[in-house]
């Protein structure tokens, strides 16, 4: 897999504090992720795993602290260099599988990789021309993963990525993540179960 960036990158958070609806979810959180590394964010329900990912993605504004990406593309903000894979798959049932993927490729811009190859990699090449409404939950998740392959970005923010995936799907996904890390990317995943790859654990919200 091509290297995403020539040099080494580092994503670091210093004293990150998250306040949601007046309640302090976590405070003074420090973390560091370097190129080629994965971090598994763990913690009980409500400890702010999703919030942390959304803070990094720029979808929430931190109540305190800073999150910076060193060594990335100087022209782009941090969220523009992130892929966010949330609980929801960002798919339109009325569009076909290929149309969904090519829309995101066009809209997200940047260097674009072969969409058909991405679909093949996630095991959806047989369904490219079918409406996305025909897909099962696991297949929808696979289609979201194809987005991460078609548009390359160094930081993957994954929220419970393996839910709805079957054993074969989780294995396939593990391969994709290893490829991404080998190419110099980084992964921050919120998860309850095993992620399927070697990952450093970041526990938030104290011990359960």
């Amino acid at each position: 897999m091509n290297r995403l960036v020539p040099g080494q990158m580092q994503l670091s958070g210093r004293g990150v504090t998250c306040v949601r609806s007046g309640r302090e979810v976590f405070s003074g959180l420090d973390f560091e992720v370097a190129s080629g590394a994965a971090v598994a964010v763990v913690g009980r329900n409500g400890s702010g795993k999703t919030s942390l990912l959304r803070l990094i993605a720029g979808l929430l504004i931190p109540a305190g602290g800073t999150i910076v990406l060193d060594g990335g593309d100087a022209d782009m903000t941090l969220p523009e260099q992130c892929h966010y894979l949330g609980h929801r798959d960002a798919l339109k049932p009325a569009l076909s599988v290929a149309e969904n993927l090519s829309f995101w490729a066009d809209f997200l811009g940047g260097k674009r990789f072969d969409a058909a190859a991405s679909l093949a990699a996630v095991g959806l090449d047989h369904a490219a021309d079918l409406p996305a409404s025909f897909l099962s939950a696991g297949q929808r998740r696979r289609l979201s993963l194809a987005r991460l392959l078609t548009v390359r970005r160094p930081v993957w923010l994954l929220d419970e990525p393996t839910t709805a995936l079957d054993a074969a799907g989780q294995e396939m996904f593990g391969g994709l993540m290893r490829g991404h890390l080998a190419g110099g990317g980084m992964i921050i995943a919120a998860t309850h179960g095993p992620l399927g790859i070697e990952a450093r654990e970041l526990r938030i919200g104290g011990t359960a």
Partner: peptide, 11 residues
């Protein structure tokens, strides 16, 4: 038929 095709076991 399309739905059957979509449900076909992924390789």
């Amino acid at each position: 038929l399309q739905m059957m095709q979509a449900g076909r076991k992924a390789a």
